[in-house]
Amino acid sequence: MPTISMFYGILVLMYFRDNRRHHLPHIHVRYQGQEAAVSIEDGAVLDGVLPPKQLKMVQAWIEIHKEELLVDWELAVNGEDPFRIAPLQ
């Protein structure tokens, strides 16, 4: 479960071979003990919960890095290490 980015106390992770439960490209986000699975395609929360402010930051970050995230998704689904992605600044 590699961490692919960190910003403002938010950890963004992508699990290996994680396409069974949600069946679409997504990331896992952790912030102060809360965790959510968030769709790469539209930023929707698939599972879990994040504070509204942090969710908005994650959604903005996804929009900026969508192409990189989709490449990382393919790597992770195939059991390969995803690349680190620049944080939100």
Results as ranks from 00 to 15, higher is better:
residue 54 Q to L: 13
residue 30 R to V: 03
residue 19 N to T: 05
residue 11 L to M: 13
residue 56 K to M: 11
residue 66 K to R: 08
residue 88 L to N: 09
residue 12 V to E: 00
residue 8 Y to G: 00
residue 16 F to D: 06
residue 52 P to L: 10
residue 85 I to A: 15
residue 84 R to M: 14
residue 70 L to F: 12
residue 61 W to L: 14
residue 88 L to M: 11
residue 21 R to W: 08
residue 89 Q to C: 07
residue 29 V to F: 02
residue 73 W to I: 13
residue 33 G to S: 11
residue 75 L to W: 13
residue 9 G to N: 02
residue 8 Y to S: 05
residue 48 G to V: 08
residue 71 V to D: 05
residue 58 V to W: 11
residue 48 G to L: 02
residue 19 N to L: 09
residue 16 F to V: 01
residue 59 Q to T: 15
residue 28 H to P: 00
residue 35 E to M: 08
residue 43 G to M: 12
residue 38 V to C: 04
residue 3 T to P: 00
residue 12 V to L: 03
residue 31 Y to K: 13
residue 42 D to M: 03
residue 13 L to V: 10
residue 6 M to C: 03
residue 50 L to M: 07
residue 25 P to K: 01
residue 64 I to V: 15
residue 71 V to Q: 07
residue 68 E to R: 15
residue 1 M to G: 05
residue 24 L to I: 06
residue 67 E to K: 07
residue 39 S to C: 14
residue 39 S to R: 13
residue 12 V to F: 02
residue 16 F to N: 03
residue 38 V to W: 00
residue 65 H to V: 02
residue 16 F to M: 06
residue 15 Y to H: 04
residue 54 Q to P: 00
residue 27 I to R: 00
residue 64 I to A: 14
residue 86 A to P: 08
residue 63 E to D: 04
residue 88 L to K: 05
residue 68 E to C: 09
residue 74 E to Q: 02
residue 80 E to S: 07
residue 75 L to N: 10
residue 83 F to A: 12
residue 87 P to T: 07
residue 25 P to W: 12
residue 58 V to H: 11
residue 84 R to K: 14
residue 17 R to M: 10
residue 69 L to W: 08
residue 89 Q to H: 05
residue 21 R to A: 09
residue 34 Q to A: 14
residue 59 Q to V: 14
